[in-house]
């Protein structure tokens, strides 16, 4: 597993902090992260229940389990990346280089990097009903930029696709991704895509 320096934003002070972006994470890495995150998820779930928050308002990745995704890392099409800040994993992402293809008209049928899963640590979820604010911000943007950079390295010109959870749709729209369709084959999730120009714009943009 190798790492590069990057920055996150301290949710309390708004100041930048040093972080490390790890790529080529292993199955064992994901298992270790899940052990920490699952305990935090369980505490959050108990707090949401206690506060009487309706299930439709719960964070939509609350049921995710990265240990179940670990075995997929044996395949060349999959790669996992993660963010570490102050000794804790702050965000994870799995990308695929196959078998997804671009759906936007100008790039139809051409290869892209598909973001299979992207999640920030449970303590970085803003949950207004619990007065929880993100401890570290910009985790999603750093990981998404890394995925675009991967697409460029692969020779895919920055093209990127993903299915968004409903709670994340507005975020991907702010990133400049195009909403292509609602996908009946993927639990009716909306499919979003970066063409090469939008991807470059996102890389050069100032979105934290």
């Amino acid at each position: 597993m190798s790492a590069a320096s990057t920055q996150l934003i301290d949710g309390a002070s708004g100041l930048p902090v040093e972080a490390q972006l790890h790529h080529a994470m292993t199955a064992k890495d994901l298992l270790l992260v899940e052990r920490v995150w699952s305990a935090h998820r369980a505490r959050l779930m108990a707090s949401l229940l206690q506060a009487g928050v309706m299930r439709r308002d719960w964070p939509q990745s609350l049921h995710w389990d990265w240990s179940l995704k670990a075995r997929e890392l044996k395949l060349l099409v999959n790669s996992a990346s993660g963010l570490v800040c102050q000794g804790e994993w702050q965000g994870l992402m799995i990308t695929k280089t196959q078998p997804y293809q671009a759906r936007l008209a100008g790039d139809l049928g051409r290869p892209l990097v598909y973001v299979d899963f992207l999640e920030v640590a449970p303590w970085n979820w803003p949950i207004p009903q619990l007065q929880q604010r993100a401890r570290w911000k910009a985790c999603g943007s750093v990981l998404l930029r890394h995925a675009v950079a991967q697409s460029k390295r692969e020779g895919f010109h920055g093209r990127l696709g993903l299915h968004a959870l409903p709670q994340a749709e507005s975020y991907y729209e702010r990133c400049g991704m195009t909403r292509v369709a609602v996908d009946a084959t993927k639990e009716d999730l909306a499919y979003y895509e970066f063409g090469r120009n939008e991807a470059q714009h996102f890389l050069e943009g100032s979105m934290p």
Binding site: L76, V77, T97, Q98, P99, G109, P111, E154, G155, H157
Partner: peptide
């Protein structure tokens, strides 16, 4: 596919 030949073969192996 707008790829290099190496990228085509790499994609074929992965698939």
């Amino acid at each position: 596919k707008e790829l290099s030949k190496t990228a085509v073969i790499r994609q074929a192996i992965r698939l």
